[in-house]
């Protein structure tokens, strides 16, 4: 029973990792950009949530209505003001600029919020649980997983059933020809980053409710998201969810064997999959 419990907890944890990963997957799909600051942006969202909840006394989930638009606006500004200038055939500028951004964000948060671990207080939600088939499942992990499924479904729908999604795919296929259709790719990239950071905001708030966070943990979140993307296969959002679940299960099973092995087990499963299936389990596009 303990093992089944670990498995189910891992699956639910995978929802959070899929949320970490969805933004990464989205911007890679649209503009082939890998954002090293992605993890720090998740942490930034958690801290924004902290500020909003402490200032207004709002419930953290309600704070999403402030933090999501805020992060989306930041994403648009960041893309148009900075990241668009790095895009091209050379991979160095985007990598090094987002790396610099990561260091700036991390130390900026350190300056404002100090290194003390913080947590978002979600009251009874944190401990509430429901019995399912002899297991006691936390309401928060269930909610997180449901939100992850919803977010990925929403992204998928946006991609395949809206004019914006059409523009995303067109720009991803061929930037020049997309420009001929009157699509300003700089604007479209801005919107893609806004959407990605909107999802990142959700991920950050749920992270902050689930565990304590401090400015230094961004790198770790980036890695989890990255592993979920690669395990699932590039360019496949549902694959990313599967990747998150596999990573989550590997971690909870690892922790069950030895608490010190939790994170390591996730990395090892990732490396194993990389060794066996270098393009991930469900690849759609090649890097």
């Amino acid at each position: 029973m303990d093992w089944i419990n670990a498995l189910v907890q891992g699956i639910l944890l995978g929802g959070l990792y899929a949320l970490f990963a969805a933004g990464l997957s989205l911007i890679f799909g649209v503009m082939r950009l890998v954002n090293i600051a992605h993890g720090d942006l998740i942490v930034l969202a958690a801290f924004l949530g902290l500020t909003v909840t402490t200032a207004t006394g709002m419930h953290p989930l309600l704070a999403l209505i402030v933090v999501v638009p805020l992060m989306a606006a930041l994403g648009y500004a960041l893309q148009r003001g900075l990241l668009n200038q790095t895009l091209g055939d050379d991979i160095l500028p985007p990598l090094l600029v987002t790396f610099g951004l990561s260091v700036i964000l991390q130390n900026g948060l350190l300056e404002i919020y100090s290194a003390d671990p913080q947590k978002l207080n979600a009251g009874g939600l944190e401990t509430a649980s429901v019995p399912v088939a002899g297991l006691s499942l936390g309401v928060l992990p269930l909610l997180t997983f449901a939100i992850a499924v919803l977010v990925i479904w929403g992204l998928q729908w946006t991609f395949y059933h809206t004019p914006l999604g059409r523009s995303f795919r067109a720009v991803s296929d061929n930037q020049d020809i997309a420009q001929l259709m009157g699509i300003n790719r700089r604007h479209v990239f801005g919107l893609a980053m806004a959407l990605a950071l909107g999802v990142t905001a959700i991920a950050g708030i749920l992270l902050g409710i689930r565990t304590s966070f401090d400015p230094s943990i961004g790198g770790g979140r980036l890695i989890f998201g990255f592993e979920a993307v690669i395990i699932g296969g590039l360019g496949n959002l549902w694959g990313t969810l599967a990747g998150g679940v596999i990573l989550g299960v590997a971690q909870t099973i690892g922790a069950k064997i030895d608490p010190g092995w939790q994170i390591l087990a996730g990395h090892i499963v990732f490396l194993l999959i990389l060794a066996v299936r270098p393009n991930g389990l469900f690849p759609r596009i090649s890097a």
Binding site: G220, I223, H267, A275, A287
Partner: peptide
């Protein structure tokens, strides 16, 4: 292992390796 990752993903792959070493 990590040469299977291209470009920017290679970069993050190297970070994973460093984390594996650390842990």
């Amino acid at each position: 292992l990590i040469f299977r990752l291209r470009g920017a993903y290679f970069a993050i792959g190297t970070w994973v390796i460093a984390e594996v070493f650390r842990l």
